[in-house]
């Protein structure tokens, strides 16, 4: 093939290619900046689990779960998160495996200062990096165990590297391509360093849905210390107690909610069921009748009617 060299494009191709591959988005100040008083921090005692091929996800998760005192082994975590045909692990599966290990996964803000705050609280942070570029990705999970603002370094447990020191700028670029995804694993009674109420409540609800009921109960009680009387947290605690079969305690919570707001129909619905579980069928039916009379929400109507039928059936079955 005969090619002519075009003097116009010569010398421009490489920069253009670089720009194309690297993307031109810069890293926002809010992501990169640390507080002026943020000093060097490194969790030197953080354990290290060198990864097997493609198994950075299990290795990173095992590191933080071990730090939080969950008794887990790397092979057991591999069985929970590794996807052989994708030669990797999904973010959602790291979250799920955290829950089934009795810990609360919490997605922190994607900023260096949020990571620093977690390190200061003694928690290492699992991050998703793209070590390649958008067009040729190399997705990688690592654990941030230290930040050195003066030297401009981020310290990681990464792959087979026990102490990987990366320039902060390079780390931020690889992290940006992972959409600044970062999680910590919390003991049920622990709060994240910077807590977003809604995100935290959703995290506890997910723990509840994963069937980790004792852990969820502790987490709701922890939430109630920070936000006393929060209806969502009280409702969560009531529902967990119900699921644990502690119906009298669930009843007490639902009554507290209704004392604050007697039109909270979802609480009255569940109160009726808690009463029915204690064989108090007349009181249960009275409560559900009040709820049905107050209701104007079409989406809730079916639920309330189902509840009434359930209670009637329980009553018949008992007699």
């Amino acid at each position: 093939m005969f090619l002519t060299r075009n003097p116009y494009t010569k010398g421009r191709l490489l920069p253009a290619l670089l720009l194309l591959l690297s993307g031109c988005a810069s890293i926002p100040d809010a992501v990169r900046e640390l507080n002026a008083d943020a000093g060097r921090i490194e969790l030197e005692d953080a354990p290290f689990f060198p990864q097997q091929r493609y198994q950075c996800g299990p290795a990173a998760l095992t590191t933080v779960l071990t730090m939080s005192g969950a008794g887990v082994s790397l092979p057991a975590i591999v069985d929970k998160v590794y996807l052989p045909e994708k030669t990797g692990s999904l973010q959602v599966e790291l979250m799920a495996a955290t829950r089934t290990s009795g810990r609360l996964p919490y997605v922190i803000d994607g900023t260096l200062s949020a990571v620093w705050n977690e390190l200061a609280a003694g928690r290492a942070v699992v991050v998703l990096q793209n070590l390649g570029v958008a067009a040729i990705p190399r997705w990688h999970y690592a654990v941030v165990v230290g930040i050195d603002p003066q030297q401009g370094k981020v310290i990681l447990r990464s792959g087979t590297d026990k102490r990987r020191v990366t320039a902060t700028q390079t780390f931020l670029r690889t992290w940006r391509r992972g959409d600044y995804w970062a999680i910590v694993v919390l003991r049920p009674g622990e709060m994240p360093a910077n807590v977003d109420q809604r995100r935290y409540f959703e995290a506890i609800t997910a723990l509840e849905q994963a069937g980790q009921l004792d852990e969820a109960a502790v987490a709701w009680q922890t939430a109630l210390r920070l936000w006393p009387g929060s209806p969502a947290a009280l409702f969560g605690l009531g529902n967990v107690r119900f699921a644990l079969g502690r119906f009298a305690e669930a009843e007490e919570i639902y009554r507290r909610l209704l004392a604050r707001d007697d039109r909270l129909l979802v609480a009255r619905n569940n109160l009726a069921l808690a009463l029915a579980q204690q064989q108090e069928f007349d009181a249960a039916l009275a409560e559900i009748s009040i709820a049905l009379a107050q209701n104007s929400d079409a989406a809730l109507l079916g639920e309330l009617e189902d509840t009434r039928e359930t209670i009637k059936k329980m009553q018949v079955d008992t007699n």
Binding site: Q51, G57, L83, K86, V92, P137, R138, H140, G178
Partner: peptide, 9 residues
């Protein structure tokens, strides 16, 4: 279509 972190390249 989910991305899977695993260092594959």
């Amino acid at each position: 279509t989910q991305l899977a972190g695993g260092d594959a390249l």
